[in-house]
């Protein structure tokens, strides 16, 4: 049998224990779904694709943030005990569902959006894969916005103003996107200052836990370098 302690309630709540059969190749999301269907019909949790693309099923699994659709129970809970809680640093809506709005608001604060400029491009951009900018952008572009890195980051907990690894990683991909028409200085300004990239302590929890094997720490280091160069050059 698999024993699950699952958070029930909102910001204030408690863990409730459920028991379901252990199954072959069972994922944590499978287990949560089985609990909902057999034991707790009011259990709230979020998922969509079930194949590691949508980034909506992340939660704390035995105190570590994980995407649950691609996490096998056998790996996360070899002793047959799972403790599931909503993602750290997010407001809890209900049970395992969190409010992602503050997370995406920080993406906007970090200018984490492509800016095509005043006139749309008339030709397809040619971006050779071997250029350093393309390589740097490619390294972080597969982010699925799951929030695992944000939940893993201690600095987010200490400094609620901190933009967080995902937003900064997105900003870095755009700094390196040669098609982007945002002024580099404006984007660097958005990720500099209180809560900006310089707040990162390089703990690398984001890089350690990212399910897509992205390294936001290196993206943030890149932003720090560029922001420092800009500061020394007096451009901001």
């Amino acid at each position: 049998m698999l024993e699950l302690e699952i958070w029930r309630g909102g910001a204030i709540g408690r863990f409730q224990t459920y028991r379901i059969p252990t199954r072959e190749a069972q994922t944590v999301l499978d287990a949560v779904s089985e609990v909902q269907r057999t034991e707790a019909p009011t259990l709230a949790y979020r998922f969509a694709c079930r194949v590691g693309m949508c980034g909506s099923c992340a939660m704390m699994v035995n105190d570590r943030p994980r995407w649950t659709c691609r996490t096998r129970v056998a790996v996360a809970a070899p002793d047959g005990r799972l403790r599931l809680a909503p993602l750290r640093h997010f407001p809890v809506v209900k049970d395992l569902v969190v409010d992602m709005a503050p997370f995406f608001a920080k993406w906007q604060r970090a200018h984490g959006r492509f800016e095509p400029g005043p006139a749309p491009a008339t030709e397809f951009a040619t971006v050779p894969p071997s250029t350093p900018e393309r390589r740097a952008a490619d390294a972080g572009i597969e982010c699925i916005n799951c929030g695992v890195c944000y939940a893993a980051c201690d600095v987010v907990g200490w400094n609620p103003d901190y933009l967080g690894p995902a937003a900064l990683n997105r900003a870095w991909t755009l700094v390196n996107d040669v098609r982007d028409r945002a002024r580099a200085a404006a984007r660097l300004a958005a990720v500099t200052g209180p809560g900006g990239c310089q707040s990162c302590h390089t703990h690398m929890a984001c890089t350690e836990t990212c399910p897509k094997a992205i390294a936001p720490t290196y993206a943030i280091a890149g932003l720090k370098r560029q922001a420092m160069r800009a500061a020394l050059a007096g451009t901001r």
Binding site: T192, G193, P194, G196, Q198, S199, K224, A227, M228, A230, A231, L232, R236
Partner: peptide, 11 residues
């Protein structure tokens, strides 16, 4: 932290 303080810290 602004970029100048960050630079001062690192240097």
């Amino acid at each position: 932290m602004n970029a100048t303080l960050f630079a001062a810290s690192r240097v």
